[in-house]
Simulated scan of single mutants.
Amino acid sequence: MEYAKRFDPIESDPQIFTELMHRLGVQENFRFDDVLDYKVESSQPALALIIIFPESQEDEQLKAKVEAKREIVITDKITFLKQTIDNSCGLVAIIHCVLNTVAANSISKPQDPWYL
């Protein structure tokens, strides 16, 4: 899929994801962690899951066909953002994790307006 704009990719690192989420205004008690074994008991519930896997050229072509036919449905329960900038998948995943969980209720104005 060809994109007109491009981001530098975000490293798939829970500390980087967490720092970015906090800088976007999410309360400090939410964080990202690596899940290395889904069978191990955890003391904290998981609110969302980001799965990373490589894509082949064939995957890209199939995705382009599906995306061309997809209708975006917005409901009061699910927020969906379409990725329109190359390499923005990490940022879009973080935003989806926040906006579609209870973490969305914790967003406040960031103390450090680094984005201005």
Rank of each mutant, 00 (worst) to 15 (best):
L62I: 09
Q44Y: 11
L47V: 05
F17R: 08
E58S: 07
I72M: 08
R6I: 09
Q83Y: 01
A46D: 05
Q61P: 00
R6E: 09
I78W: 12
E28M: 03
D86S: 06
E60C: 10
D112F: 13
E60G: 02
F53S: 14
E67V: 07
I85Q: 07
E11R: 15
A93N: 02
P113I: 14
V102G: 12
V66S: 06
V35F: 01
A64F: 01
L47F: 08
Y3I: 04
I16L: 07
Q57L: 02
I94S: 09
D59W: 00
R31H: 10
C97H: 06
N100A: 04
F30A: 11
E19I: 05
K63G: 06
A103W: 05
L20Q: 02
H22N: 07
A68K: 15
L116R: 15
E67Q: 13
E71W: 01
D34R: 14
I95L: 12
F53R: 11
L99E: 03
W114I: 14
I50D: 10
M1N: 13
K65V: 07
Y115W: 12
Q57T: 03
V35M: 11
K77F: 04
R31E: 09
T75V: 03
E55P: 01
N87C: 07
I74C: 05
T75M: 03
Y3H: 12
K5T: 06
I50K: 10
K109S: 15
H22M: 03
I107P: 04
Q15Y: 02
G90H: 00
V98W: 04
R23H: 06
E11K: 15
Q15P: 02
E28W: 01
K39S: 15
I52Q: 14
F7C: 11
T79I: 08
P14Y: 03
R31K: 08
S42T: 14
N105A: 15
L81G: 03
T75P: 07
D33V: 12
K63D: 09
C89N: 01
F80C: 04
C97A: 14
E55K: 13
S12P: 01
H96I: 04
